[in-house]
Design a protein around this nucleic acid. Structure first.
Lengths: 188, 188
DNA sequence: TAGAATCGACAACGTGGTTGTCCGTACAGT
DNA sequence: ACTGTACGGACAACCACGTTGTCGATTCTA
């Protein structure tokens, strides 16, 4: 126990496992017994570190392309809004948060000019949240940047290893949709 | 563009990539040209989903073992505190947040009984933050649970594929230490 | 038509993060 | 030795994100 966490000095990390597996033979050998497995806590740290790195790179590039005020949460929310638009309540359902929380997010997105709210002609209770052209652009840029980022991974790992990585992550990922209540989930 | 995000109904997801890769032959063939690569946005989603799943499983198990009030942020903070203890300021540095933020975290950890603060005998300015026995226990349990969780991955993917997965993530992970200002990073 | 469900808004609150300020202690240079 | 600077901790004000609870208005349904 006592992991290195985020210490600049990894302190107690067993640097052991990591070397081989260059082109990934993936042969079903009988476990050489000499290989020391990574400690269990490293896996979540690796997942988080790479997620953050990807999102940070996305936003660095997004800032260069005219969207410096965008935050990770905004992108996910805008994805969930989609080209057809939705209501705050439905957005809350999609993001896995309360309608009030979704409403606040919409408010912020509106202030930033990524979204606009219009009355629903067919239901006076509802207010449709729609992406503005600026919002659409941010989403389009994001998709393009993510593809570039993935290409970067393919270049470093090789296309095949990347596909295997994605496949492995896909088989382990829970089928239930992700919730994006990051702040509350992590801390509260 | 327009990703599914967390929508219960994937809405616009190209269901294409995902099917096969059951046992992963992983032969180094020359790119059949017929394989359609996953869209770039899927990778971060997979990383996040698996990270969350792992942490959620950890905390479900932790709750069963006598630590139901623990939150993800607490675990990371306690790791950073370590067995030797630290000061709030130093903790802030390790977690990549301000000393005030670290101080608040310590306060809450103290209320929960995971940490205690004692005056430093050699420096009247400092107050040492130390794990209580309960804190040590939480950390020890966490390490054990993470190992179990990793064993579960090894069982589903095979030990070799898991090692390759970890290796790939290790090569792509930024060497700079992770920051754990999750809430602010994601949303603010 | 009356009752139930839904949407949006508002309030109060907890948590985590930020900056800025201030005070007391430690250390180092003159 | 003393004085100036650096450091640690505490406080206040603020923002972002999430929560629950309430409430009025509208729509749907029995």
């Amino acid at each position: 126990m006592i992991e290195p966490a985020a210490s600049p000095e990894p302190a107690g990390v067993p640097e052991s496992a990591a070397p081989g597996a260059a082109t990934a033979g993936s042969a079903a050998m009988t476990e050489p017994a000499g290989v020391r497995d990574a400690p269990g806590y490293e896996l979540p740290l690796l997942l988080l570190a790479n997620f953050r790195a990807l999102i940070d790179q996305l936003h660095a590039e997004l800032a260069d392309r005219g969207h410096p005020e965008m935050r990770p949460a905004h992108g996910f929310a805008m994805q969930a809004i989609g080209r057809d638009g939705t209501t705050a309540t439905e957005l809350g359902r999609r993001l896995g948060v309360s309608k009030q929380a979704a409403g606040k997010t919409v408010e912020r997105l509106e202030r930033l000019g990524y979204v606009e709210r219009v009355d629903d002609a067919h239901d006076a209770r509802r207010k449709l949240v729609r992406l503005t052209p600026r919002g659409i652009d941010a989403l389009a840029q994001s998709a393009a940047i993510f593809d570039d980022l993935r290409a970067g991974w393919a270049a470093r790992l090789g296309p095949q290893r990347l596909r295997e990585l994605e496949a492995a992550l896909r088989t382990m990922a829970p089928e239930r949709g992700l919730s994006f209540d990051m702040a509350a989930w992590f801390g509260a």
